[in-house]
Nucleic acid binder design. Structure first.
Lengths: 118, 118
DNA sequence: CAGTATCCTACCCGATACTG
DNA sequence: CAGTATCGGGTAGGATACTG
């Protein structure tokens, strides 16, 4: 709807529920790889389906690389690409901000809950 | 669902369709204020309703301050708070990344559209 | 001018079951 | 092991009309 704003497009992607978490977990392990089940274990609460669609979208965007070992059963490995790694930098800055300032945001919301009804 | 991850919570907020755009426009004007209609003019495509709910959520989070001049008709002014300004820093880093790298992401998607069906 | 109120649709995401 | 298929609830967000 505003194709001229790259930031909007980017947030459409990394703003989905699990994407930033998947990138974070892969970044912590980078440049090593993680298998599907390992990722799942490290992301509490994610379903098989959501991990699958999230990874597909990241692969499609070129942020994550997928490597299949043609064994049986198959072993599939995921890692951040160079592009994914470069995204991790500004993303981790945002994480630091969140860890520092979310308490303030929470407090602001509590104030809003208490005062305006009265 | 994962209340322990502040980054998730933050992205839930700034990941909504118009939030980052509103913050950006307010940041460009900071420390000056903008009125409701001025904001609307500077954000092509946003509806009155979505600007309203987006601003309410930002005010509630303590990222934006709202000031009403009790004239008739009323004049309402918005500006970023200190907290909002501090968020603008990592956010603008993400914008720079987006402007630099969205073309790569787009190209990656085009490749995905062309090759895998064939 | 700066909002609400209402209706409506698309789609995100979770739960569950099935497969090579 | 690493997925896909299907169903359904909740909600983000657009269109439109109304108000102090």
């Amino acid at each position: 709807m505003d194709p001229r704003c790259p930031a909007r497009k980017l947030l459409d992607r990394i703003g989905t529920k699990w994407t930033s978490m998947v990138v974070k977990v892969l970044a912590e392990e980078a440049p090593d790889e993680l298998r599907f089940a390992e990722l799942r274990r490290r992301i509490p609460g994610i379903s098989q389906k959501m991990l699958s669609v999230t990874l597909q979208s990241l692969v499609r965007d070129g942020l994550v690389a997928r490597r299949v070992e043609p064994t049986v059963p198959p072993a599939v490995h995921y890692r951040l690409t160079e592009l994914g790694l470069s995204l991790e930098r500004p993303l981790s800055a945002l994480r630091v901000w969140a860890e520092t300032h979310m308490p303030e945001i929470d407090r602001s919301n509590q104030l809003a809950d208490e005062s305006p009804p009265g």
